[in-house]
Design a protein around this nucleic acid. Structure first.
Length: 771
DNA sequence: ATAGGGTTAG
């Protein structure tokens, strides 16, 4: 009896792979002790079993009982530290092993090299490479693979100053993994209110009509993935250039000198090339791999797909998808999540969903891929729906989940949702994560809470360009141009180079603040000092500013001098400036330009008709309205919405079918009377001329934002700020009217329109004359 | 003993 059990124990010890769970390992451990078989050799074998199933604490406990650990014991602990993301401890043990006089052999270097990669320490990696050559292990298959992996992960450190940021990212990642969950009772920006748990996260999308959802997306916003396509085109040349640089050399050299190569070697070099953006080279290697009689597996495919996504190359992506189907890997959890991401980055969300549906097993990453995919393409409600489904599937949201979903709250301006998520983020200690913090800054700014946005930004330990840009854009959105400029300068002093988005942010700030000289300064410096060619958006910001400042001729010449063909929408901003400054001659000139490049530009027709009406040139106005009808273009209906008690209420202009319409109308009548006493005169100049005067007044009073504001006054406690969002620009009359309303009801009113926030308080507006 | 997927600003 006893001998047979002993034999079994021995057999198990010799076959560590057969043990898969902690209890099995502990049973074996107990039996070893029971039979007093705890020889040095057996204990080391046990240790290697513990480390194999990644039990760090058990491994260490056992390790500490051994007085003179043999090499196997050391190597097990080193391996375990590395796979727990503890490179310092791993390398410390490696040094301990050498110090105790043991000789390193072929199966310790893979873990040690991986630790170098985790530490982002290229110097150490190179020293180790030298050491490996001296002990004659540089032709070992596993060591060679690990060397290639280390170099491909650290090569970029040579090339630029990205080292600091990279180290920061690694640090974030590490702290996140090792940090225990902590509870924080005071919630930043949550006004001390206790936030319900994520389990209670319940977002009611049904209270909004389909029409409203369509409207929300019309707010001046281009889904992020549409930029990716543009950027990928512009980056094409650079990518080719990099692939001829020396960065691939050492990895390639190791690969070519390896006497024996396996699938892992191929996958490692392919993944390495992919990580370093060597597009053509990576694709070439996959073909070459086929020549060596190796078929791409899930590792190969899942490391190539992100590169294809980055290049927005849908045809290559489909090829790979086809390949994964042929290999039976299209439902592999790794391949599928990169497929979802690839399709989303190519703006093919429907295909992403199809891949997602086929998945039988879903982890946090596959959920996040589909959530991020929706959000990046502007499908915010779908993103939120998937997020809730993920919670219901009992998948705990991680840092990635929050940074993916937060933009949805930001763009929908649903502050209650964002706050709820923020509460969860704080309680789980995620708020140090740079992605999350930046998305929170953006969310609070977009939801009108610029103070909280600043608080969070100020508390960030590490800031990258995205964080700065989010904050600068936030200031721009709130008309705080001087703050935005100060931040931009500060960013440069901290050695962070602005990109075209950062310039966009600072130019927007200048434009909203009417700072013409500053705008010129930044516009010129962008190309001169940073080599960034201005895009349409930059031109638009400057010409918009010139137009608003009344420098119409200057703006006209500026647009004519653009190095890329001006779009209809750029001309349209100038046209609206012509309206504000009542310059009909220029308006006609500009209108002709618009119709040349974009004959179906809705905005131009409407603006022109309005300009003629305002000048009482009814005939021309009617002519333009008629041609609008003839072509069949219709004005985008204005729509405003307000959040009251965690519910969103939407209003269309003059929508009498709204359930609250009567109450609003009654309140409005009282209000208008008070306003007129204070000196309010409705500006009806842009309303159709054949409408009665009384009717005109009624029309301007039924503008969507006014309905929403009055609804807010009726339905929220006195003293509370009223926050309204509108899909289009606030019109002149509403701007004036809201000033009066804020004074009469003694409340702060914040209106967000398609480009900015207007803070109305006590009869004034934060944006003054520039809006 | 080695290799792989998802995140923030426009």
């Amino acid at each position: 009896m006893r001998t047979s059990t002993e034999a079994l124990v021995k057999a198990l010890l010799r076959n560590p792979l057969s043990i898969k769970s902690r209890s099995q390992a502990q049973q074996l451990h107990a039996q070893v002790l029971k039979f007093q078989a705890s020889s040095l050799c057996n204990l080391s074998l046990l240790l290697s079993i513990y480390s194999h199933i990644n039990l760090l604490h058990d491994s260490l406990r056992l390790f500490n009982t051994i007085h003179f650990p043999p090499a196997l014991a050391w190597k097990s602990v080193i391996r375990c530290y590395t796979s727990h993301g503890l490179p310092h401890q791993s390398l410390g043990s490696f040094i301990g092993m050498l110090a105790s006089g043991l000789y390193p052999d072929h199966n310790v270097f893979p873990s040690v090299l991986k630790s170098c990669a985790l530490l982002m320490d290229l110097n150490l990696g190179e020293s180790l490479h030298g050491y490996i050559i001296r002990v004659g292990l540089d032709f070992d298959l596993y060591t060679g693979n690990a060397l290639m992996n280390m170099y491909s992960k650290l090569r970029f450190l040579e090339e630029s100053g990205r080292q600091r940021l990279g180290a920061g990212e690694v640090f974030d990642e590490m702290t996140e993994r090792t940090r225990s969950v902590r509870t924080v009772s005071v919630l930043v920006g949550n006004e001390g209110r206790k936030v319900s748990d994520m389990e209670a996260f319940n977002y009611d999308v049904s209270c909004r009509s389909r029409e409203f959802e369509a409207q929300v997306l019309e707010i001046d916003y281009k889904p992020r993935n549409q930029y990716r396509e543009l950027e990928a085109c512009n980056l094409g040349q650079q990518i080719k250039d990099i692939s001829h640089s020396k960065s691939e050399d050492s990895v390639r050299k190791i690969f070519e000198m390896m006497p024996e190569k396996d699938l892992v070697s191929w996958n490692t070099i392919i993944a390495g090339n992919a990580r370093n953006g060597l597009y053509e080279e990576t694709l070439r290697m996959i073909r070459e791999m086929g020549g060596a009689n190796l078929k791409p597996d899930s590792f190969t495919l899942s490391s190539v797909l992100p590169l294809i996504a980055e290049n927005v190359d849908i045809s290559r992506g489909k090829e790979i998808h086809g390949c994964s189907i042929r290999q039976g890997l299209d439902a592999d959890i790794y391949v599928a999540s990169s497929l979802i991401d690839m399709y989303a980055k190519c703006t093919r969300v429907a295909d992403s969903c199809r891949v997602f549906t086929l998945l039988t097993e879903r982890d946090g990453i596959s959920w996040n891929s589909i959530i991020a995919g929706c959000v990046q393409n502007g499908l915010f409600d779908e993103g939120l729906r998937f997020f809730r489904q993920m919670l219901m599937a009992k998948i705990k949201p991680k840092s990635y989940s929050f940074s993916s979903i937060m933009p949805a709250c930001a763009h929908l301006t649903t502050l209650h949702l964002g706050k709820q998520l923020h509460g969860y983020i704080t309680r789980n200690g995620f708020d140090e994560n740079i992605f999350i913090a930046s998305s929170l800054v953006d969310m609070y700014a977009k939801c009108g809470n610029i103070r909280t946005a600043k608080q969070i930004f100020d508390r960030m330990r590490l800031r990258d360009m995205v964080s700065w840009t989010a904050m600068i854009m936030g200031c721009a959105l709130h008309g705080q141009a001087p703050d935005a400029i100060e931040l931009f300068e500060q960013m440069e002093t901290e050695g962070i180079k602005p990109n075209h988005v950062a310039f966009m942010a600072v130019l927007t700030a200048c434009s909203h603040g009417g700072l013409v000289d500053e705008a010129w300064k930044y516009f010129n410096s962008m190309t001169r000092d940073f080599g960034i060619a201005p895009g349409v958006e930059h031109y638009a910001a400057v010409s918009d500013l010139l137009g608003r400042a009344g420098r119409l001729e200057e703006a006209y010449d500026f647009i004519c001098g653009m190095h890329i063909g001006p779009t209809g929408s750029i001309w349209a901003t100038l046209l609206s400036a012509c309206r504000v400054h009542k310059n009909i001659d220029m308006a006609e000139k500009v209108a002709n330009r618009i119709l040349e490049v974009d004959p179906n530009n809705t905005g131009a027709y409407i603006l022109l008709a309005n300009i003629y009406s305002a000048a009482r040139r009814w005939k021309e106005a009617a002519k333009w309205r008629a041609s609008m009808r003839r072509i069949g273009i219709r004005k985008t209906p204005a729509c405003s919405w307000i959040e009251v008690k965690n519910k969103v209420y939407a209003f269309m202009a003059g929508d009498e079918s709204h359930p609250c319409y009567e109450k609003i109308r009654e309140a409005m009548e009282v209000l208008v009377e008070l306003m007129e006493k204070e000196g309010y005169v409705p500006d009806t100049s842009e309303v159709h001329h054949d409408v009665e005067e009384e009717q005109k007044k009624y029309l301007v009073c039924s503008h969507s934002e006014r309905l929403a504001i009055v609804f807010g006054i009726i339905n929220t406690p006195a003293g509370m700020t009223i926050r309204v969002t509108k899909n289009l620009r606030v019109c002149t009359d509403c701007h004036t009217a809201t000033k009066f309303i804020s004074k009469i009801v003694g409340r702060e009113i914040v209106v967000r329109d398609n480009s900015r926030f207007h803070h109305f308080k006590n009869g004034t507006c934060s944006c003054g004359d520039y809006w």
